[in-house]
Design a protein around this nucleic acid. Structure first.
Lengths: 200, 200
DNA sequence: TCCGAATGCAAGCAACCGCTTGCTTCTGAA
DNA sequence: TTCAGAAGCAAGCGGTTGCTTGCATTCGGA
């Protein structure tokens, strides 16, 4: 038999992503985990402790590509941005719930804040490396540039399905457009090119 | 005496912004509106109808600057983006709650979706006008460019206070950086070189 | 003056919620 | 075989929640 504790945590995370803190009743979690409700309290003592544990164990399970020394920024940023988008899009329901619950349950914030914070640092450092490598010639604020791209990706991941009135281009187009725009914004020029001949 | 109906709607919106759908109990709204709980049901029949009415009346109360024919894009976009940021930042709690509740109460979505949708169209059209006016020389996807800026502003408005670990620059700096980056991205070049007032 | 509409008030109902208690059943190590 | 720990089960307790009912009060217009 699988560890019952993990089953409960996974079920709690699923229920939470769908119903938020208030909607995550202990009875619902018990049914989802196929476990008696009393068992939840024996393991975690409190609904709050249960949910906190469920979200914080999710925090450490992300696998995002690194951003090393820039050599082909368009490809590297593209891969990274695409992975980030899909990761956030996959957990968008949970993220939305946390955004609402954070006000009264700030202990849930780290589960959602830590990762974007980390990715923002990664991207900022990458852009700085581009600058020192002579790959980014414009005068730009690297943290703001990172925030702009991250914000664009995040918002698109959260809201994509809610603006289906107009025809939204496929994900790949949107993400690669974001990346191209950012590279343009920071004055990206492939090494060895003298005349502006960048066409994506 | 002020119209009791408006007082109820305003109170419901306040309570909702703080507690979300599930947390917005009819008793809480009644207290906030200084009205007997029964009165809520006599006016709106149902908690759901009450909240829906409260949010949809909020929808039409925004005052955002227009984006007309571009003449000084940096200033015009700066003013528009700043106003948009402050507007979203002021209603960030409500927006976050709606994001979580939308899953089970899609009728609340328009209250939050309509406006960004409208602003996105405005900005897209503005960028297109810049292009045809020769103010934007790069080869860019105008809808994606608009989405990038809007996404950056939106994310910053929602999350600004939750990333206080690092030193976040002042709002004005962030917004103007976003605008500069976008203008750079679309190849903005002032027409001052040839004639100062070519477009009027 | 009278009427009816709007509001207040007290009470309550059925369902749900977090959590507890007391008990039985199963399982695996000693 | 024994036994402690883990899990199930049934019941329930006090509190909350959406909503209803019945009745009293206020007040502006006819």
């Amino acid at each position: 038999m699988i560890d019952i504790r993990d089953r409960i945590l996974a079920a709690a995370a699923r229920v939470y992503a769908e119903h938020g803190f208030r909607g995550t009743t202990t009875r619902r979690v018990a049914v989802a985990a196929e476990v008696n409700e009393v068992t939840l309290f024996r393991h975690f003592g409190t609904k709050e402790a249960l949910i906190t544990a469920a979200l914080s164990q999710l925090e450490s399970s992300s696998v995002l590509p690194p951003l090393n020394q820039p050599s082909d920024p368009e490809a590297e940023l593209g891969a990274w941005a695409t992975a980030l988008f899909h990761h956030w899009h996959g957990s968008r329901r949970l993220v939305c719930q946390v955004m609402g619950d954070m006000q009264h349950h700030p202990e849930l914030a780290p589960a959602v804040c830590a990762e974007p914070d980390c990715e923002h640092s990664k991207l900022t450092a990458y852009l700085e490396r581009m600058r020192t490598a002579g790959l980014a010639t414009a005068d730009f604020h690297s943290e703001a540039a990172a925030g702009l791209l991250l914000g664009g990706i995040f918002t698109h991941a959260m809201w994509r399905e809610h603006f289906e009135t107009a025809a939204i281009p496929p994900v790949a187009i949107v993400i690669s457009s974001f990346v191209s725009l950012l590279l343009n914004a920071i004055g990206y020029q492939p090494l060895g090119v003298r005349s502006p001949k960048e066409q994506a």
